[in-house]
Design a protein around this nucleic acid. Structure first.
Lengths: 125, 125
DNA sequence: CGGTATCCATTGCGATACTG
DNA sequence: CAGTATCGCAATGGATACCG
């Protein structure tokens, strides 16, 4: 696995597609959708309820983007009126592991961050 | 201090500050600035040159935000006209490790992602 | 239910000009 | 050099209405 793990920095600068991909995947709603679907598959309106702050338009856009990049799959169930289920994909699961690592990091560092904020806000105010 | 690491998912939903922090830290420019400063400290205009696509205004905002959250430190050097150096902080370095993991992930998954995109774009077009 | 289409307010962001 | 201030456009994103 260490075949391509050279100065990671170069990936950022030289190889735009890598950055572009993260830009599409690390936004506010994607992280939350990903996290929800990692627990279990959900329907459109279930997702809306699970993430109350997201608007319908934004949720649709987020789902399309995640689907296009292969992170989730959109499954149309035969049912009356219509039923669509969104599922995490294998790749999506690997991404979610990294996102979880990020979440664990925030959990650890939040106190230090809040202290830093207090210092910054205090010295400037 | 309870080190309970319960279903990470709950952190996302219940605890807004965690998500909020990631929202401030995972944007387009922050990742690149962080990555640059992890290699070596840089001055304002060095950063601009290192990340040509970023505007002055956005760079300033990004630096302030990273500084406020304790990820970098702003060091005013005594020099003529003025010299300011931006340095990664210890916390910032730990964040950058996770970002690097993300970058390595994109490097691994990019082919699969591009395939997914081709499939998506092809079936829809 | 699971969307799309449209309108509209807000914001983001680049370009430009100016300052200590 | 390292910013701040201002302007104006373009893109987000919410609210609403409507469709299969």
């Amino acid at each position: 696995m260490d075949n391509t793990a050279p100065t990671i920095t170069k990936l950022l600068q030289v190889d735009a597609p890598h950055r572009g991909l993260l830009d599409e995947l690390l936004d506010k709603w994607s992280l939350q959708v990903l996290d929800q679907l990692c627990e279990r598959s959900l329907r459109f309106n279930e997702l809306r309820r699970a993430i109350p702050a997201v608007g319908q338009k934004s949720l649709t856009a987020t789902l399309r983007r995640l689907e296009r990049n292969g992170m989730i799959t959109r499954v149309v169930l035969e049912a009356r009126p219509v039923a669509v289920e969104y599922r995490i994909s294998p790749i999506g699961e690997t991404l979610n592991e990294l996102v979880d690592a990020l979440l664990r990091w925030t959990d650890q560092q939040l106190p230090a961050v809040q202290e830093a904020r207090a210092r910054y806000d205090g010295s400037g105010a």
